[in-house]
Amino acid sequence: MKLQGKVAIITGSASGIGRGIALAMAKEGAHIAIVDVNEQKGQETLAEVNQYTEGCLFIRDISVKENANEIVEEVVKKFGKLDILVNNAHASRQASFVETTQELLDLSFGTGFYPTFHFMQAAYPELKKTKGKVINFASGAGLDGQVTQTSYAAAKEAIRAISRVAANEWGPDGINVNLISPIALTPGVEQWRESAPHLYDAMIERIPLRRLGDPEQDIGRVALFLASDDSNYITGQTLMVDGGSIKLR
Rank of each mutant, 00 (worst) to 15 (best):
I17C: 10
T45L: 05
I71R: 00
E74W: 03
I21R: 04
E70S: 13
L57Y: 09
K41W: 09
Y52N: 04
E66I: 06
A47M: 13
G18P: 11
Y52D: 04
A30H: 08
R60A: 13
C56A: 12
L46A: 08
A68M: 10
A24S: 12
G20D: 01
K27W: 02
D36C: 07
V49T: 00
A33H: 06
V35N: 11
L23W: 05
V35W: 05
G18N: 13
T53I: 08
D61Q: 14
H31I: 07
V37H: 13
K41A: 11
E54R: 09
R19N: 08
E73P: 11
N67A: 11
G55N: 06
I34V: 12
N50K: 00
E44V: 10
E28M: 06
L46V: 07
N69H: 15
I62Y: 11
K27E: 01
G16K: 12
I34Q: 01
A47Y: 08
G55K: 01
L57K: 06
V75P: 02
N50S: 01
V49M: 03
I17G: 10
I62R: 13
T53V: 02
Q43I: 14
D36T: 12
E73G: 08
A24C: 01
N69R: 15
F58M: 05
A26N: 02
V37Q: 14
A26K: 03
A24R: 01
V75K: 04
R19K: 14
E66L: 06
K27A: 09
E73H: 10
E39F: 09
L57C: 11
M25V: 03
M25C: 10
K27C: 08
H31M: 10
L57W: 06
N67T: 07
K41D: 13
D61K: 15
T45R: 02
I32D: 00
A26W: 02
I71W: 03
K41R: 14
Y52C: 07
I21L: 05
G42V: 02
N67E: 14
E48T: 10
G42I: 07
S63D: 14
L46Y: 04
N38T: 14
D61I: 11
N50R: 00
N50L: 01
I21G: 01
I17T: 10
R60Y: 11
L46P: 03
G42N: 04
V72S: 12
A22D: 02
D61M: 13
N67I: 01
H31P: 10
C56I: 06
I32Q: 00
E70T: 12
A47P: 07
I62M: 10
V72Q: 08
V64T: 10
N50E: 03
E48L: 13
E66F: 06
A22F: 01
N67Q: 15
E73N: 12
E48N: 07
E74G: 05
M25G: 01
V35Y: 08
E28T: 10
I21T: 13
I17F: 04
E70P: 09
G42L: 03
C56L: 09
V35R: 09
I59D: 11
T53M: 00
L46H: 03
L46M: 07
D36E: 09
G20E: 06
I17V: 14
N38S: 15
Q51K: 05
E54N: 11
Y52T: 05
K41T: 13
G16V: 02
V75M: 02
E54D: 15
G16S: 07
A22I: 02
E73W: 12
